[in-house]
Design a protein around this nucleic acid. Structure first.
Lengths: 239, 239
DNA sequence: GCGGCGATTATGTCTAGACATAATAATCGA
DNA sequence: TCGATTATTATGTCTAGACATAATCGCCGC
């Protein structure tokens, strides 16, 4: 293990063990420099990494201090459905229920948030695990932003997986909520109407600055609905 | 803006604009060094920061490449309820419904996952926004790990906010799921039984290595239930 | 006691080198 | 032609300095 990593993990261990509690002043850079017998840059990089991850706070002249935990910014990993199901069950299939091309609907908050000007490709489908419906997906793709999508046969490919491979890096917004399944969705998912479901929405845009160059910045909006007893989001993390 | 940040944001802008697509080889360190007229260390730190954030991948001898987006690791910020409600509505209150001290129940998966040996403080309460019930909370606190909790009057303080200030840094696991409200919870929240609710669970442990020193590593387990139409989790992020 | 001011000091950023490491590309031998 | 060896090269890590910056502390005058 390299020296920077060693210093960083040493300090982190003392913090997580509770030996250095929130507010405690950790040794000055020159003290750690002497302790580890290395250059100040090495210590500095280690402490800066801890500061970036939020574990410590650094103040000129005062020193470096163990930060106070702030759980309000906890993070949860949202796995891609297809890859997750393939890994867990081995059997995954996407079934396309409906496909149409139409203009954006201004009265739809979800579509308005995308700020699209051109036509939209609208898809509805089901994610199956071992031939059992697992999740419902409603997706909107901006054809002005992703023209290639018009020619793809989504009755065979998961739109999410295809987009990941054909759209460059972008910004996104997630919303996670609980809803009662309406009649149509419930029928597709083979559950009773009113069943508690986890709803995952995601808006994806190109980054600011290129918005106007391509007929609007919105790339795609997707709404996925999972019956509560078949899906949940789990994540290990450090607050 | 310092030079390292400038190089980093320049490269990031080209990636997010789509000018450098996934797989594109970005200029070598020595090329950027010449372009910006600085030392290699400065360029190296900028590119390493981008690599840590997952935007680029670096391979010795080959160079640095724009990474392929991997949405499966998207992140969502989970705000602290109290601070969120205080900020949004201005009115927030925690109401304690029940309090007891008892031994851990081995048959409870939630409590077993904490690996606690000593007694537990068990709390049930409601989060109110403007005197309307907003969320139900069931919480377990390990008294061997947090002895001070026994003496606190939680009829006045939100246990989550108190713990953040009295427990050092630790590891945690989250689970987000959708459930139908059972009769008791529904009554507390003043909704119909069976209402779709968002359930947020969190386990908190001291980091590994100090587990045995304090009668088990588990700090607290909390289960929060929100009616779907009153709460959702929103997060901006870059995949 | 108190407010302002300068000295001190820890971190922030950067340089111009050095050697290590790993992976590719080129070379050479069978 | 194929495979093994060697050379090349880009990144990884580190050093021993340098100057900048900001915040604190103590001093001094009021």
């Amino acid at each position: 293990m390299n020296l920077e990593t060693r210093i960083r993990t040493d300090v982190e261990a003392r913090i997580r063990s509770g030996e250095w509690r929130p507010g405690h002043r950790i040794p000055f850079e020159h003290e750690l420099t002497a302790q580890y017998g290395c250059a100040r840059m090495t210590v500095s990089k280690a402490l800066q990494a801890l500061a970036r991850s939020g574990l410590i706070e650094r103040r000129r002249k005062a020193g470096s201090f163990v930060a106070h935990p702030h759980v309000q910014s906890a993070v949860v990993a949202i796995p891609d459905i297809g890859s997750r199901l393939r890994a867990q069950t081995g059997a995954y299939r996407f079934e396309l229920l409906e496909r149409q091309v139409r203009a954006p609907r201004r009265q739809s908050p979800a579509e308005a948030a995308l700020h699209c000007r051109g036509d939209l490709l609208v898809l509805e489908g089901l994610h199956h695990a071992a031939d059992e419906p697992f999740g419902f997906e409603y997706r909107v793709i901006s054809l002005s932003c992703v023209p290639g999508a018009a020619a793809v046969d989504f009755s065979a490919t998961d739109p999410g997986a295809w987009l990941i491979g054909h759209v460059p890096w972008s910004d996104a917004r997630h919303r996670i909520s609980a809803i009662a399944a309406d009649a149509g969705t419930a029928a597709s998912l083979a559950v009773a109407a009113g069943t508690a479901c986890l709803q995952l929405e995601r808006w994806t845009w190109l980054a600011e600055g290129v918005a106007d160059a391509r007929g609007g910045a919105g790339v795609t909006y997707v709404r996925q609905v999972y019956p509560g007893h078949r899906y949940d989001l789990v994540a290990e993390f450090k607050p």
